[in-house]
C-alpha cells in the first residue's frame, strides 16, 4: 500500500517577538528569523504513518511511505529526516516565496493532487487538518474533491488490515468511530495521540538521509493555473487582554475572603 504524508514546515510562532505581532498598515508578519518546525498536525500524521508501518511487522502488508512538501529549499532537511526514519520517497514542490501561498489551499491541493496523478500514484494520503500559520483548514477536503476520493477527518489512529483496507479510528462529537476503510482515501489528522515525530539517530541520518529529494516545479504541478481566489485585505491581532481587578487587602486571608465574597460565592451557589 502506498501512503503519502503531506506536510508543511512552519516557523515556531512562540519565538516571534511581541513587536512583530504589531501589524499596523501592512499585511505581513516577519517570521523569517524563527526556528523552523513541523506543522504540529502534520507531525502527528507522519508519526502515525510510521506507527502503522511498525504495526505491519509480521503481517502480510507492505507499506511504502512517501512524503511531499510545498515550500522553500530549507524544507529539504525535513525530508531528509524522513528518509532517515525509513520513508522511501521525498519530494518538494519548489516554492521559495512561501508567503504567497499562505492562504491558497486551492493551489496547494492542486499541487498535491497533480503529484499523485502525474508523478507517484498513491493509495492513501495523510495531511494535517490545518497549518499553524495559514489556518485555512481546507486542503484535505479540496484534495479529496480533486481526486474524487473520500475524506475522513479527525483521524486519531490507523491500523493495518490488508493491502486494500485500513482500520481507521476518528473522533466525532461525543466519541470515536472505528471503521474498516477501503483505499483510496484522504485522512486529515487532528489531535493525534502521538503528536511528536520520532527522532532518527545520527547514524541513520548518515546512512539514509543523504538521498536526493525529488524537486518539482509548481507550474508542472498545475499550481500556477489555479487562480488565487483569496487575498488578504487586513490583519487584526487578537486582543488577549482581559479586564482585571487587583484585590487590595492587608493579609492573604483578607484577600481570599474578598475574592470569595465578591466574585466566587454567587457563582459557586449557581453550580
Amino acid at each position: 500500500m502506498k501512503i503519502l504524508g503531506c506536510f508543511k514546515v512552519v516557523p515556531d510562532l512562540d519565538l516571534i517577538v511581541e513587536e512583530d505581532w504589531n501589524i499596523e498598515n501592512h499585511l505581513h508578519i516577519d517570521t523569517g528569523y524563527a526556528k523552523l518546525i513541523w506543522n504540529c498536525f502534520d507531525e502527528g500524521a507522519l508519526e502515525m504513518m510510521l506507527r502503522l508501518s511498525d504495526l505491519s511487522e509480521g503481517l502480510n502488508v507492505v507499506y511504502k511511505l512517501s512524503a511531499l512538501t510545498i515550500g522553500r529549499q530549507k524544507t529539504e532537511n525535513f525530508l531528509k529526516t524522513l528518509y532517515a526514519l525509513g520513508f522511501s520517497e521525498g519530494a518538494r514542490i519548489c516554492v521559495e516565496a512561501e508567503d504567497e501561498i499562505l492562504f491558497s489551499p486551492e493551489m496547494i491541493s492542486e499541487g498535491i493532487a497533480n503529484y499523485v496523478k502525474k508523478i507517484e500514484g498513491q493509495d492513501v494520503i495523510l495531511t494535517g487538518i490545518q497549518s499553524s500559520d495559514g489556518n485555512n483548514k481546507m486542503t484535505p477536503y479540496l484534495l479529496a474533491e480533486k481526486l474524487g476520493w473520500p475524506c475522513i477527518t479527525q483521524v486519531i489512529g490507523l491500523e493495518p488490515i490488508d493491502e486494500e483496507h485500513l482500520k481507521v479510528t476518528s473522533q466525532v462529537s461525543g466519541g470515536c468511530i472505528v471503521r474498516k476503510v477501503k483505499t483510496p482515501c484522504v485522512f486529515a489528522i487532528g489531535n493525534a495521540p502521538c503528536s511528536y515525530l520520532r527522532i532518527p539517530t545520527l547514524k541513520a541520518k548518515m546512512k539514509l538521509g543523504k538521498r536526493p529529494v525529488t524537486r518539482l516545479v509548481p507550474e508542472d504541478m498545475g499550481m500556477s493555473e489555479t487562480a488565487e481566489n483569496v487575498r488578504v485585505t487586513a490583519l487584526n491581532p487578537i486582543d488577549k487582554k482581559r479586564n482585571t481587578v487587583v484585590i487590595e487587602a492587608d493579609s492573604p486571608q483578607e484577600k481570599a475572603r474578598c475574592l470569595y465574597e465578591k466574585y466566587l460565592k454567587e457563582r459557586l451557589s449557581e453550580l
Partner: peptide, 11 residues
C-alpha cells in the same frame, strides 16, 4: 546552530 537558526542558516 541548527537548533536555533534553522530558519535562515544553511546546514
Amino acid at each position: 546552530a541548527q537548533q536555533h537558526f534553522s530558519a535562515w542558516l544553511e546546514e
